[in-house]
Write a protein that binds this DNA or RNA. Structure first.
Lengths: 215, 215
DNA sequence: GGTTAAACGGACGGGGGCGTCCGTTAGCGT
DNA sequence: ACGCTAACGGACGCCCCCGTCCGTTTAACC
């Protein structure tokens, strides 16, 4: 729509513009982390010390702001998964993934929301997510071979865990962190292979991108 | 504020008023179950075939409508817990509670939201919830004695599970039900006593009524 | 220092949700 | 049948949020 595309950097921004853009991203990361994605864009503009129009000039829509703000987090998540995937013990790697991702959510509330397709059209997030999930699926496949991961575990269970972890929302950051840690430990226990563990009901195929929740 | 208190029934309502009130409650239950508590009050009034003013005359605030609509569900939940608590095998009873409550949420999205203090000031919900949680705590205590429930389980873990279960939201009702069932099975696995299960990180005390989430 | 255009931000429009007002309707008692 | 009043509902005010417009500021270049 707008003839100018400042986020693609086809030409260098003016000094103040670049400065404002950086402050906006910084404020967005901070606020989204603490409050989640529901926080109004005005609040971010206010904390960045700019007017609303400036925010929308740099990020034409809230979705693009979210995507840009969580690009780093997405890379961090990818790193977590890649590093865990490189672990010689795939079961230990999978456990680390669960613990780290639960903790990531506890510290950064907005990220999980973004990751779980609050904005399905954010291609960066979606493609990144699919790569991450594919990596984890392979990790799980190898973890089963070690005999530590129960055989009826399915990759979609991990999405289930993410969704569930998203539901854990507490007012105090420390409580949030403690709760997510304990929850992660419970999840690991749940998927541990045990001679006398009862069979699970059928898994659900979760196409995370598909849904059009409301309207 | 209003001199008339139609919900306390100090005097009989007129026939049409009583009829409208019933249809409002029915519509509220149906819509809240399917869509959750975020659905606008207008929608409920529309489905009940009345104007917005009529809704607000019977239920001065959305919170009171929610409370009234879920009074039955709360009793149903209480029944589930009471029946499970009367089971001679407390471990089986606890498992049934988890399965039934997860399924309850799957079928009725609004209830879990209401139960988990989306409206902290709804006294009916809060007191009912506290009674339910107390019953479950006692059930868990007895289940530990059987040796099937892991000793480091704490009653607050159940609130954690409820919060987590709330996070599982899928567009399709059948998928929602399947997901909640599988999740419940995983949770039961997680709290099953097993000789070589790893110790859990410290529990969190969750004062469910306390938080003032946003604003 | 002056010119130019990029960048800014206050003010605006649009949409949606909650709760209320007041003129109108219709149930109930006689 | 008739009047009284409870009950109704369309229209309204208020608030919040997203995204835009236009007059003003200011960085960049000569």
């Amino acid at each position: 729509m707008t003839p100018e595309l400042p986020h693609s950097s086809p030409q260098p921004l003016r000094a103040d513009a670049r400065d404002n853009r950086d402050r906006l991203l910084e404020a967005a990361r901070a606020v989204f982390s603490q409050e989640g994605l529901t926080v109004p864009t005005r609040e971010i503009a206010r904390r960045a010390g700019v007017g609303p129009a400036t925010l929308y000039r740099h990020f034409p829509t809230k979705e693009e702001l979210v995507t840009a703000a969580f690009a780093d987090q997405l890379r961090a998540c990818q790193d977590i998964v890649d590093r865990a995937s490189a672990d010689p013990d795939p079961w230990r790697g999978l456990c680390q993934v669960i613990e780290n991702i639960c903790e990531l959510h506890a510290r950064d509330r907005g990220f999980t929301e973004a990751f779980l397709s609050a904005y399905p059209r954010a291609i960066t997030v979606v493609t990144g997510r699919d790569r991450i999930l594919a990596t984890i699926a392979d990790l799980a496949r190898r973890a089963k071979l070690t005999g530590h991961l129960r055989p009826d575990f399915e990759p979609d269970d991990l999405v289930l865990m993410l969704l569930a972890n998203k539901g854990i929302q507490l007012p105090s950051p420390t409580a949030q962190l403690a709760a997510s840690r304990r929850f992660a430990a419970l999840l690991i226990q749940a998927i541990t292979h045990c001679p006398h563990n009862t069979p699970l009901p059928p898994a659900v195929h979760l196409a995370t991108n598909r849904p059009r929740p409301t309207g």
